[in-house]
Design a protein around this nucleic acid. Structure first.
Lengths: 219, 219
DNA sequence: CCGCGAGCTTCAGGAACCTGTCAGGTTGGT
DNA sequence: ACCAACCTGACAGGTTCCTGAAGCTCGCGG
């Protein structure tokens, strides 16, 4: 499951991120609402973990904004004990669940599992794409039944395509997804990784749109 | 959601059709593969419910055919319990899900909901213009259900027409849009690109107004 | 502290493709 | 019929992309 964590406290954020990763989900972690918006423009998430107190605005407004534009991604709110009114306002704004800080990490796991079960009937969805069987939870891929090993970067890149099947993704968008920490890249790294993915997964998996970008090919 | 039901059993077909309608979707019901092909040529569907045993052929072949021509419409296969091999073959051929007969109608509703959620996670507005389905967000165009590839320049040009449907656009205006910075053009480039667009999208998509410019034709 | 290996990035040569230009043909208005 | 405007096939130059190989970084074990 792809999860977007929006939390500015680095201690809590690190702990939550590690716990989610340990549960077998993939996490993107941002500390600001505008970064969250950018991330959601690039990738589709299965769940948002949303802190309500952030440096560039209140999370409630953000939640209302994405609900207003029709986004139905499940949202779990992270809130401090004394912000009861925020909690209620959050649920009214379209949140699915909430966690009161400080919370136990096992409680986090349980809430995530609950949302996951509620929103995806089958607990361990395997995506079939052409000759590929992709298990997002265990991060494993089989091609014609044979296991394929992807490196971290390769997986991050392929994940970006899986999140938006068929959609055109520019190299800039892909770079933003792979190199979140402002560290800019000035070479054809994306091209090289696309090349490696094609070698491992099949030449037709990723299509080139000259001058525009790449997209996941049809099954 | 527009759903095409392909099922020759009248009892089951009636029940499924009524259930889908009760769920608030619109249904077209055909009992033969050739009728299904005709229906898909006329209307774009969001989901196909495909029985594998039909009077005029096996559904697997039909599924492979539409996938081969690039159609990515979600497909749920309806199959009898003893046709396990068909089920696997169906998934390999590009089906998204399957239902084993006999199935509960509530299960059908759940599967349809699941497919709907998976494919409309990000509601990409799709513009329909005559035989064209245009998805601006993913930058993809389908003509009579078949994908059409546009180059960067062609997109830029077509985009200009889509932004002002029906409005007259002079060549000068189009040049300004395509070649933002001073880089002037001194030939019939626009004419050439219009010609290429017509070849890919259909001759009547762009109309010529002699001596004045071009405009997007009516649907 | 050093060597080693895996993975990542950079580079460079060549291939594939895009696109501006032109020429000859076609269309439409007067 | 004439002329201007437009269409379109062909082509070459330029851009973008692919990919093998080399260089680099980082973590790990010795």
């Amino acid at each position: 499951m792809r999860i977007l964590l929006i939390e500015d406290d680095t201690v809590l954020g690190t702990a939550v991120r590690d716990q989610i990763a340990a549960d077998g989900h993939s996490v993107d972690w941002v500390t600001r609402l505008d970064a969250a918006g950018d991330a959601m423009a690039v990738a589709a998430y299965d769940l948002l973990l949303l802190d309500l107190m952030l440096p560039d605005g209140r999370g409630i407004g953000f939640l209302k904004t994405i609900r207003n534009r029709g986004d139905v991604t499940p949202v779990i709110i992270l809130t401090a004990l004394d912000q009861i009114s925020d909690r209620i306002e959050g649920l009214n704004a379209g949140a699915d669940d909430y966690l009161v800080k400080p919370f136990d990490l096992s409680e986090l796991t349980a809430r995530i599992g609950s949302v996951a079960r509620r929103y995806s009937g089958n607990p361990n969805p395997i995506i079939t794409h052409g000759a590929l069987d992709i298990d997002l939870a265990s991060r494993s891929i089989h091609r014609n039944g044979k296991p394929v090993q992807l490196t971290a970067r390769e997986w991050a890149l392929f994940d970006a395509f899986l999140a938006r099947p068929g959609q055109l993704l520019s190299k800039t968008q892909l770079e933003d997804k792979l190199y979140a920490h402002g560290a800019e890249i000035e070479s054809n790294t994306i091209e090289v990784h696309v090349s490696r993915l094609r070698k491992k997964l099949g030449a037709d998996v990723i299509q080139t749109e000259r001058g525009m970008g790449y997209r996941l090919g049809p099954s």
